[in-house]
Structure formats: C-alpha cells, structure tokens
Design a protein around this nucleic acid. Structure first.
Length: 556
DNA sequence: GGGTCTTGCGCG
DNA sequence: AAAGCGCGCAAGACCC
C-alpha cells in the first residue's frame, strides 16, 4: 500500500492507494496536529509514504517520536526519472520543465513560492503538479522502462537515503565540545580576540618575517604572500602547499605549518564549534542526491570534510560504542563488477591492489593504486598516465568500459550508472564550442580549446559511471543496514543502534556497547546484500573494514 | 556596502 | 606520486 500525503490550506490530505495505483478509498483530511498520531497508526500496515520532499515531512515526525520504514521522495525520484536514459521515452521525461524540476529542496523555498499546493500562484503548471498525479506519472515511467527492476531499486534506495539523512540530523553525531577546545588550545594557543591571530600562528608569522628578513608578511593573503616570496627571490607560481613542498628553503616549513593550522582555525575552530555543535551533537545538513553522480552533498558545517585532526572529538556516549566501517577499495571493485572483468574480479578476491601486482600488470601496490585511480579519473600524464598501457593489457575488459564512457562524453552523449542514473547533458556553452571547433574555418586555437573541453567532459563521464554506481552501492548498503539496525534494539531511534555519519563509502553507527559485535555482523551482511542487489550473482566481493571504538580518531 | 569570483584546502 | 574525478567552505580579491 502507498499513502500519498499532500498539504493544502485546509490541512493534510492522505490518499491510500492499492499496489496497482487505484484509490483504496476517499482521501482523508487530517489536521496538522493530528498528523503524527495518524501516521503512527497507519505505519503498522507498513505502507510506503509518498510525499513531495522528505525534508518537509519527516523532521517533525521524528521530533514527535516516530520512525518510518519507507517512503517515496517524489522530488528526488523525479530528478532521476527526468534524466535517466532508461525512462527517456516516458511522458514524465518528455514534459516541459515544471515545479518538480526545482533545483533546490522544496523546504528551502518560502511557502508562497511553491507552486505545488497553490495552483493560483502559478496557474501555468496546472493541476498535473499534485503529488498524487506526479506519483502516478512516475509509476507509469517506471513500468514502461526498459529496466523497471533497476530503476525502481534506485528510487527506493534514493528515498531510503532521504529518510536516513533526516534521521542522522535528528540523532546527531556525538561531539565533545570540551575535547575539541582542548585540541584547539593545544595546537593554536588560547582562543584569540576577534580578528586577532592565536599565539601559535603569530609565532609562526614572526619566524617567517625573521627568515625572510622582511618587516611584514601576511600568510593569510595568497596575493601578498606570493609577492613577498618572489621579492626574496623564490621562484613560485602559486602558494599552494603541494607546490611549496617542492622548494628547499627555511621559510617553507613554518609556512606550511601556518597554512595547516590556519585552515583548522577558519574551518573547524571555535566559531565552527559554536555554530554547529549543541547539546553534545553535531547536526549536519546532508543533501541526498546533491551531486550529479548521486553522491550526497552537505550544506553548512562541512559534514563531508571533517579533518582527521579533530575526529577525536567524536566520542560515543557512556556505555555506547562507535562502529566505524568503510567499503575497502569500493570504486575499483565497482569498476570490476560493472565491466564483469573476470581477471580483475580474480585480482580482487583479497586486497585488490596486491592482486593487481600478483597479476603482473605493475610492480608495486602503490603503482597498482595510482594506475587504478588513473583508469577511473582519466589520467593522461605523470605516473598514472604511464601505467595505463600495462593496466590495459592486463585488464582489457575493464579498461574498455571506462574508455567507452569517456568517448561517449567527448561526443556529448549521456552515460548511465548500473541502476539507471544518467549523467547531465553538457550545457549550451559546451555545444557551442564543439560546433565552433569542428567548423571548416575554425582557428587552431579554437580547435584546441574544443578538444580540451571535449576530453574534460569525457573524464567526467568516465568517472561518472564508476562514482555514480558506487554511490548506488553505498545507498543500498545503508538502506539495508538501517533496517537491520532497527531490528537490533527497542525503543526510539536514538535508543537503538543507529547511523550517525555517512561519507561516500564509510558509515558510523552509534550503538550500545553490548550490541557492537552484532552491528559489525549486520554491516557485513548488508554489504553483501548490496552487491547482489545491484550486480546479481557477479563474483565480485565488497569487503568491509570495521573498527569498534570510543572515538572516531581511533579508527584507521 | 554588497554581491560574485578566485584561491586554497578539507574530504572521498 | 601527481595534480586525473566529485564536492563545500572561508577568506581575500575584485567589481559595482
């Protein structure tokens, strides 16, 4: 059973649907304040809740103590169906852009700007924009798809991800502000007055002045720093750390240390702590489907960029543990499964990179890693580029697949992940330049620019199929894990083992200590489920590394 | 003064 | 080891 929820000025409307899409009864109107009780009652029948945007419904339900098993997030589903080559012929994909193609989550927009429930505001969209009609249009597109099984799995995983994102924000990542502050004081000195440098940074700037024998140096301004360095005879093109590392000069060491600490101060210093940590929790805003490839984004707090320096401040509650798990060498394994390259699958029975060395393709594990990254990112120069021919000889099938994706992108074509997420179409500027570059009278410079741009888009599509399918795997992993964790405990969401962090191929589960071993088992089981769900009986394994720790800094 | 672009660096 | 993919954020630079 599906239950389609929508809001109108009169309250919430709930329409039950049978699995064939027919209305089970007359739609019910529910007052906003009765909604949690209403949903709680119906949840016992395990419906799939259908709503426009999870962020507009689920947070308040969580706050009321509910946890729902499954949903359809129409906005996220629409974005996938609209772009997917698997549903390109559907009415949904062929319709002109409308309210469901909004670039931002609906919750980010003021209510008055939403055309979804107030047809008078934007009559141009007509009544076809209602959640019920959109849902039926989506069902139609899925049913007519060449691969309904794949696309519906993707939509289920994407929607589960939306539930998880809301739940992780609700539960929060356990964060000890006191520990974080101790760390800052230890590395930077006491908290400075606003606008002033902490003692440690001031000291480093002073040493740099002495070494360079200048009256002033401002390492916070790349432009000024570049002038100062050049003024003292240093040949540098920029002030990037990786470039400075190559230079042999006494000022480099304190400068690099300054940069490292200044970064900590501005990105995750006292201000960050005050803004993002409250009541012992860091509550990040995750953005499911926030990137072209289907990876999540984050907005505010930099949840996906937590530097290793401060991970020690992520501490389990007393009597609880953190189970940190990541999928080992996920993207190369995804490439293996996508291409069904049996020799690469054989190499991946244990450590994939060691397996590649054993195959004779390259000499060292480090080379194997660089070569695989080169294959997935499209390296042309450097060691990655040099290793490509050997890798291609050893694993022709896998390499042919990413090469084909690159060639398609260079031609401006769309590529599609295993479950059906398609890459965006290149923009008008891209097409204009390609056209200009292939014209009879094109200048050499235009030809070169067009070629460079084509290859750049080819690197994007090459990577898209791997990164995008890896994102699908991670979503399936997490969705399965979420259900398994729920079965391990009793009570509300935060009283049972629950997800508190997700970073592309890595998750953290916060769990009562006595359940940690069972959480580890569920993590592994969910990983092999995910592999089967996406690739069927392919002989590719997705090993998980796990660590049961008191704080995140202890993992890895 | 405010908005947008650029630089640099954190994560995978 | 090199600078090839995907992101978000803060600060300075730059422009009006």
């Amino acid at each position: 059973m599906h239950v389609v929820l929508s809001r109108s000025p009169r309250g919430v409307c709930a329409q039950r649907l049978d699995d064939d899409g027919t209305a089970r009864d007359v739609a019910q109107n529910v007052a906003e304040h009765d909604l949690p009780a209403f949903i709680g009652r119906l949840e016992r029948e395990r419906p799939r809740w259908v709503w426009d945007d999870t962020t507009r419904w689920y947070p308040q339900l969580l706050a009321a103590g509910l946890r729902l098993e499954r949903c359809v997030d129409l906005r996220l589903s629409h974005a996938i169906l609209r772009g997917s080559t698997l549903t390109a012929a559907s009415r949904l994909a062929r319709a002109p852009r409308g309210a469901w193609d909004a670039a931002t989550p609906l919750a980010d927009k003021p209510e008055t700007h939403s055309a979804l429930f107030d047809f008078a505001v934007e009559p141009a969209h007509g009544a076809g924009d209602s959640p019920l009609e959109e849902f039926l249009l989506q069902q139609e597109a899925i049913a007519a798809s060449a691969e309904p099984g794949r696309i519906s799995r993707l939509l289920a995983a994407e929607s589960a991800g939306a539930l998880i994102a809301s739940e992780m924000k609700f539960a929060g990542l356990p964060w000890q502000a006191g520990l974080h502050e101790e760390l800052l004081v230890e590395l930077l000195g006491d908290r400075p007055a606003p606008g002033a440098r902490p003692a440690r940074l001031e000291e480093l700037a002073r040493r740099m002045r002495e070494i360079l024998q200048v009256s002033d140096v401002n390492p916070d301004s790349p432009a000024e720093l570049l002038k100062t360095l050049r003024g003292t005879g240093l040949q540098v093109a920029s002030t990037r750390s990786w470039e400075l590392k190559e230079i042999d000069h006494p000022v480099i060491a304190p400068l690099l240390e300054y940069k490292k600490l200044a970064r900590l101060l501005t990105a995750n210093g006292w201000t960050w702590l005050e803004t993002w940590v409250a009541d012992g929790r860091f509550r990040a805003d995750y953005v499911p489907g926030g990137t072209a490839t289907g990876r999540w984004g984050a907005s505010g707090g930099g949840a996906l960029q937590l530097p290793k320096q401060i991970r020690g401040a992520v501490v389990a509650d007393p009597g609880w543990k953190l189970v940190v798990a990541d999928a080992a060498q996920l993207e190369p394994r995804i490439l293996t499964a996508l291409s069904a390259d049996r020799r690469m699958a054989e190499a991946g029975r244990g450590d994939l990179y060691e397996g590649i060395v054993a195959s004779g393709a390259v000499a060292t594990r480090a080379q194997a890693k660089v070569a695989m990254l080169g294959a997935m990112y499209g390296a042309t120069a450097g060691e990655g580029g040099r290793l490509m021919p050997a890798l291609t000889r050893a694993f022709p099938q896998a390499i042919a697949m990413v090469e084909a994706a690159a060639r398609a992108g260079e031609r401006g074509e769309v590529v599609t992940t295993r479950l059906g997420r398609s890459s965006p179409v290149p923009g008008d500027e891209w097409r204009d330049l390609q056209q200009a570059g292939s014209a009879q009278d094109a200048t050499e410079a235009t030809r070169r620019a067009a070629g460079g741009q084509a290859r750049s888009w080819g690197r994007f599509t090459r990577n898209f199929i791997v990164q995008g399918t890896a994102a699908e795997w991670a979503l399936c992993w997490m969705a399965g894990l979420r259900g398994r964790l729920w079965q391990l405990g009793d009570g509300g969401l935060a009283e049972r083992p629950h997800l508190v962090f997700f970073l592309h191929d890595e998750v953290i589960v916060h769990t009562p200590a006595e359940l940690a071993d069972r959480v580890v088992a569920e993590l592994r089981a969910a990983a092999s489920d995910a592999g089967r769900l996406i690739f069927g009986a392919m002989p590719v394994t997705f090993p998980i590394t796990t660590a049961v720790v008191d704080n995140y800094g202890q993992a890895k």
